[in-house]
Amino acid sequence: MLSHAKKGDRGQISKFQPKSPEEVRLVELGFKVGAHYEIVEQAPFSKDPLVIEINGVRIAVRRFLLNHIEVI
């Protein structure tokens, strides 16, 4: 799950079926199956939100929204 990723993690999205409008927005921002990602930074203490770079685009997001994204 991408929602469990830590700072510095890199990988590829393997499965993502967007259901909510926010998840659809994630797809539009580049969270597609096969996309490579890197966790750039995470907030101190809670480690949430985090900053993900995907296709060269940086996105700040709460982990909650990444719950349905499977990664390898």
Partner: peptide, 8 residues
């Protein structure tokens, strides 16, 4: 609040 999602 709705969880944050913003392009940097």
């Amino acid at each position: 609040a709705q969880p944050l999602l913003i392009e940097l």
